[in-house]
């Protein structure tokens, strides 16, 4: 639990983000945490050195509405989420189509934890140095 945190849903997200913009907040970044069964998407905003966070709990297969129509700067980080976690982000202002940080032949969604809950033989798909 972070300070100044507000839980939001997919329906209220855009309104809340627009409200932050209206109050003069600066968009800082979006953080995605893979909890295994769900994703936690944290939106960070800043005003006068105080951080304000929105927490969105997202199902493994749900779409994420883009906030790039409200804060254009979010477009880069949302493309990153799409690449690294394989989250389908809808209505992106600039859509790199999963080729923002990764290229053809890269591992698919390297930061996403394996989806299937029954324990399969562990797949090492990250390719990172152990």
């Amino acid at each position: 639990m972070l300070n100044n945190e507000l839980p939001v849903t997919r329906d209220t997200l855009l309104n809340e983000v627009a409200a932050r913009r209206h109050q003069g907040y600066r968009f800082v970044t979006v953080t995605c945490v893979d909890l295994g069964d769900r994703f936690d998407i944290l939106y960070h905003f800043d005003k006068d050195y105080v951080l304000y966070n929105l927490r969105l709990s997202l199902g493994r297969t749900e779409n994420l509405p883009s906030i790039s129509s409200i804060f254009f700067a979010a477009v880069l980080v949302e493309n990153e989420l799409k690449d690294l976690f394989g989250i389908p982000v809808t209505d992106l202002a600039i859509d790199y189509g999963g080729r923002f940080l990764l290229s053809e032949g890269s591992p698919v969604a390297p930061q996403r934890k394996p989806d299937a809950p029954p324990a399969q033989p562990a797949q090492t798909k990250d390719g990172a140095v152990k």
């Binding site: 080729r99 390297p110 990250d126 990172a128």
Partner: peptide, 18 residues
């Protein structure tokens, strides 16, 4: 102008888990 990055993505955030 449109930036294209990803030439030196190293996956350091993933390495934290190890």
């Amino acid at each position: 102008a449109l930036p294209a990055v990803g030439y030196i993505h190293r996956g350091l955030e993933k390495l934290v888990e190890k």
